[in-house]
Design a protein around this nucleic acid. Structure first.
Lengths: 188, 188
DNA sequence: CGCGTAATTGAAAAGTATCAACACTGGTGG
DNA sequence: CCACCAGTGTTGATACTTTTCAATTACGCG
């Protein structure tokens, strides 16, 4: 449930040696908002280290967490292709180091570096293939089943993520999450 | 809610003139299954005309519909990048014409045709950007709100899609869908 | 006409949200 | 050093929503 892409990160590490002017390294602290929904940006980011959350907020202030992003995950890249405003917000959970690259230079790399191109295609394909079953499972199964599944995928998520974030990721209230956890304890 | 990509289709129409050996045209009838979950394929498809549904089925036989695909939408392409089995099933809703192309030739086009490459990148970016708010909205709002929203996006979906498909798309039971529709009628 | 699929409806059971009260924690300022 | 505060987490009671199950009707097609 915390997405990573080591191959992409490794390649970008080497790219940033070759093109030191393309990649700017930035550091964000826990709880800083890196990207804000519905704003326009000229750059996108790839995570060097740390964890962020990618979430959508609605008019009532509720936030729905799409994904937790770790090493090698990019964000803000969709806007390169759509030309639209940012469709989600990104907030640092831990302290985070990122590579920052402008849309133009990103496009240039896509056009001239076939290895990079392929890695990005693959990264996007993975994102699509990941979202589908998650949405499906979340709708079709009980909260308890979802927690069990999350434990299998990422055993100690409770140490890394706040209860509130977990609830927002699952699309349920904190109350329901707590009850389900108590039920699971009893069930043992 | 029925996804299309006219630009991609137009370009593939011209490509299929240039490379008639790359693109095979096939026709499927309503209710035929074109792609089956958890099987391996060497080809992928782009829709020329007609509508399909893309769905995941779980062990209880319930199906959760990811998207309805119309003109210019591709499917089976994720497996080119992941190398995995098909992660969803595709079934024709209306009669459907598709272009079929092998993984190898698709890869070749991606590598040698920058316009094609860009169109595919854009198509994938759109898919990602579409899924996120849909999942979010579906979890955060009531069934009635979701129906109202679907009506805004696609006014006469009830003429094209069966009630069961609509319910599976929304991740709810047919019973709940019917109740919500009755409520909406009353509300007018 | 008769068959199977799709659609409709009611009643009971299960699941989830809402609201509200309270405990725990770490950090800040007097 | 303690009091306070804000953020986070816990718990109970109640109201609401959705599913489940089952029975019935409507529709299209050979």
């Amino acid at each position: 449930m915390i997405r990573t892409d080591v191959n992409l990160l490794t390649y970008i590490d080497t790219l940033s040696q070759k093109h030191p002017d393309y990649f700017l390294v930035e550091r964000y602290h826990s709880k800083e908002v890196i990207l804000e929904q519905d704003k326009r940006y000229q750059s996108l980011y790839i995570i060097k280290s740390g964890i962020t959350k990618c979430y959508l907020s609605d008019e009532n202030g509720k936030e729905f967490i799409q994904e937790f992003l770790g090493k090698g995950m990019e964000f803000g890249e969709l806007e390169v292709f759509s030309g639209n405003l940012s469709f989600c917000s990104i907030e640092a959970i831990s302290d985070v180091d990122v590579y920052k690259i402008s849309h133009n230079q990103y496009t240039e790399l896509l056009e001239n570096d076939p290895v990079f191109n392929r890695l990005i295609l693959k990264s996007m394909a993975t994102k699509i293939g990941y979202k589908a079953p998650r949405h499906s499972f979340q709708q079709s199964y009980s909260i308890e089943d979802n927690i069990i599944r999350m434990h299998q995928i990422f055993p100690n998520f409770e140490q890394v993520l706040s209860k509130k974030d977990i609830a927002n990721y699952m699309g349920i209230t904190l109350r329901s999450l707590n009850r389900a956890l108590v039920q699971l304890e009893k069930g043992k």
